[in-house]
Nucleic acid binder design. Structure first.
Lengths: 352, 352
DNA sequence: GACGATTTGTAGAACGTTCTCCATATAACG
DNA sequence: CGTTATATGGAGAACGTTCTACAAATCGTC
């Protein structure tokens, strides 16, 4: 006896392309032609078939489609679903896809390379039409092998030399520069970056790019050739502990640039608890301009990189690639500063 | 000429079950049997096939599997990806699924019934093995028709009388009661609820359930038979305006229960901006115990309903249903109160 | 050593599409 | 009217699995 024993009570007679064909009194091929609006269909035939489709409420099986042709599905891979920046990207993707006949299916890899690989493989095995990978961890060579099998657009993945797939990025180096420039403009000289302590941090990741931008801007501002970059672990318990230690350091810098709002907001919160005044004692600037940062309660200055727009652009690129483009594209968006109270006390006296 | 013209440059010779069979010197059926670990396979054969699979790095096509048998994929449908509660549910689902051979594919309906329907249909058409619907908008009868075609577990959908599908819920009525009881215990008598202004708010939705619980607890506390419930629109611009108006009402209540942290946090923020002190002028209690609520900066009391746990339970229920259970199950979790400064000033004087 | 029972492996028909030929029917043209 | 082009519809072979039926081999058992 196998474990896989299953009963099938519901002999749910599905409406297939054959049902439609019979009902309309035409061949299966004819129906298929109408569905794909292929060449060689008279108006009369089309009308008849369309009618039958309507009355039978026929939907082509995606599984069967995938087996033979295209499935009209695009796969989206997210590293993480907790970071509020990622949902923004999804919103952008869905926005562009909504009026089309494409649909998005999302996989979440939780930053595990193993799972990331298997999800990408699954999406290929489903014969999806294309993939949008948001901040993937896999090295470029691996992505290239996948890209042979399926059109791929990588978002938040800095590899402008990739020829097999497209990339869509905000200019993270520039974003970090803008942050530093803003801090400099406020007169701060003693600046540190709080970055992400990744294990396999590869150069293509947005975090590393921001570090590069940070270093360059600091140098350009004449603040030494190797400014301090502290790493915050992503795991929860140690994370707060490290931040607390940072805040109570007696050589704590006057201003800090965080790689993400996620960290910046936690930092703000801990600062308040520990009696470190922001921005009087410590100026903070984040990255992503998440909706939480915009709250009056939080009031965190941040670098805006419109995830929604990134999602839109990536989707359009993917569709154009699905439709035949083969030369790779590497698109850049320019981020911008959103100044708020965590940077410097402004004119409007919202009492915090 | 059709629009659908596509070139196929990559004749990427896929490793199929046939390749494996040839390589191992056995029949296709034999390989299939090993894959499904079905009855009637000798150890020798199994070893040979497993070897071949290994060396060829064979992965069965999900599309083809879907066409004939099961696809080992379960679909998850989210109304919304912005509400940080939803990602928690996903985390729970992924946690349970990770060690199994199942994978989750997520669709986001953005609360549009149209899109919700078409995503569910797609998932069925992909021959996914089961569906987890998180707070679906579709009426129960419609879900029942879908449930005939595919195992379904609905999360955050109060219909204990459904026989065709399972439901997994936190007891939202009880949650609201707990919130009111907490406010009563603090001595507040003048309590209002800020609920969600849904268009097609149906009785099965969590929001309506919380309203019911709110009403009952208020009555039980002797605070009138029809306590005030204000509706906050979900659309962004009007939303803040309505909240501001609420805050500046001169008959503003002493305490307020928000249907979601999402609203509660915005309210807290606007209150600060407008000089309404929390909790001295207004006590606030939210729902979901999101990570933002836990921030010292926000310090919002909230009802905890562990989305992660909900996701886990739902996934286990779904798997058991996929594996043959037919009687429907309706599972309840009991939410709990997380008390914080927005409710009443506590002993620990974190200066806010 | 004959005969049923059991174990092990295979052939081949689905599943629901797409899409490449073909076979007509009709139009155009000299 | 014959010939060629063009427009329209259909047959049927994939696609990569699963799974039922069946054949062959092995094992007891009397």
């Amino acid at each position: 006896m196998s474990i896989e024993e299953k009963q099938k009570p519901q002999r749910n007679d599905r409406v297939t392309i054959r049902t439609v064909a019979t009902h309309a009194g035409v061949s299966v091929a004819a129906v298929s032609k109408v569905m794909r609006n292929a060449y060689g269909v008279s108006d009369a035939l089309r009308a008849r078939v369309t009618d039958a489709i309507e009355t039978l409420a026929y939907r082509p099986s995606r599984a069967a489609r995938g087996l033979r042709g295209r499935s009209f599905t695009i796969g989206v891979l997210l590293i993480d679903i907790r970071n509020p920046f990622l949902p923004e990207v999804i919103a952008g993707v869905n926005g562009v896809l909504a009026p089309s006949h494409y649909q998005a299916m999302i996989g979440v890899s939780d930053a595990r390379v193993q799972l990331e690989t298997s999800l990408i493989e699954s999406m290929i095995d489903y014969k999806m039409d294309g993939l949008i990978l948001v901040a993937p961890r896999l090295p470029s060579e691996i992505l290239a092998t996948f890209a042979v099998q399926i059109p791929i657009v990588a978002v938040g993945y800095h590899d402008a030399s990739a020829t097999a797939f497209d990339t869509v990025n905000a200019d993270d180096q520039r974003g970090a520069e803008i942050a530093v420039e803003a801090l400099l403009a406020c007169g701060y000289r003693d600046i540190e970056m709080l970055s992400l302590g990744e294990r396999q941090g590869h150069a293509v990741s947005v975090v590393r790019q921001r570090e590069i931008g940070f270093r360059r801007a600091m140098q350009r501002g004449g603040l030494g050739s190797s400014p301090t970059i502290s790493k915050i672990p992503i795991a929860s318990p140690k994370r707060e502990e490290v931040m607390r230690r940072f805040l109570s350091r007696k050589d704590r810098p006057r201003a800090v640039f965080c790689w993400s709002d996620l960290d910046a907001i936690t930092l703000l919160s801990l600062a308040m608890e520990m009696g470190v005044r922001v921005p009087e004692d410590l100026a903070v600037i984040g990255y992503d301009n998440s909706s939480t940062a915009a709250l009056g309660l939080v009031n965190l200055a941040s670098i805006d990189q419109s995830g929604r727009e990134l999602g839109q652009v990536a989707t359009r690129a993917l569709i154009s690639r699905i439709e035949g483009r083969t030369a790779s594209e590497h698109i850049f968006q320019i981020p911008s500063l959103v100044s708020r109270n965590s940077l410097t006390r402004f004119g409007n006296s919202t009492d915090r």
